[in-house]
Design a protein around this nucleic acid. Sequence first.
DNA 1: CTTGAAAAGAACTGCCT
DNA 2: AGGCAGTTCTTTTCAAG
Lengths: 152, 152
Amino acid sequence: MIALDDADRAILRALQRDATQSAGAIGRALGLSQPACWRRIKRLEEAGAIAGRRIVLDAEALGFGVTVFLGIKLAARGRVSLEDFERAVAAIPEVQVVQHVLGRFDYRLRVTARDIADFERVLRRRIMTLPGVGQVEANVLLSEERRPGPLG
Amino acid sequence: MIALDDADRAILRALQRDATQSAGAIGRALGLSQPACWRRIKRLEEAGAIAGRRIVLDAEALGFGVTVFLGIKLAARGRVSLEDFERAVAAIPEVQVVQHVLGRFDYRLRVTARDIADFERVLRRRIMTLPGVGQVEANVLLSEERRPGPLG
DNA sequence: CTTGAAAAGAACTGCCT
DNA sequence: AGGCAGTTCTTTTCAAG
């Protein structure tokens, strides 16, 4: 487990908000020099605290206005393996995230579609036909807010 | 709504996987020159297809080994406003994501904690005391896989 | 840790097909 | 639209205090 001091936490928080910021700009905001801040970022990357850098897409702007979270309980009968389910789910392009979870559901999926009609198509033809699928529950996303988190 | 061709989609896919790649490197993989690829990325940013760039933290490496998804149904009685709930939730550092949803729940929260004991503390002292909170359901994350999505 | 500077690479610009 | 050549800017690395 990686130990962080206040400056490390501030750096991670800043980069989580906007990863285009330069080491110099972040350092300036913290009272650190550019090389000092840069070395900290490098260290955090090498230690594995920073897993990677990604762009965030605006699904709405790209014509995918509907995001739905599905909770899926596998049917007890049939002994369909989790691997079969995961393989089949991975072949559905509309599935953005697959979460294996413990609780009332076995899997949670984040699904995006162009509109409700499109989502119905995905649900009926792709989701309901997954191997071993039992109960399915849906929650439609209205709005979403990301927060820095405890680390972080 | 932004129209994308195959090259745009390939660029977004590449940057979603790893946003450290340079325009030159991505272009080379697609048979585009550095400026051509750079202009496409710029256009996608200005059109709003790319909402931003963020680092991805490794919660496990940072000592937050437990991630739990909470579904929360507000109590019908009391007429507590969504704003009150959202304000109170925003003050809990362990909450990473707040999703306002439609369906069996009103809100979905992504919560991270150091361990199960730590999560219990958050649940009892922070979550269950939120204004207007009714039914709460939890799913513990075992593993998670992100996929490119339909766009994307 | 700092400042300063140099080298490498990426971002950006103009012009041309 | 895309490519080429050039300029400008960061990022990255190093030297020295």
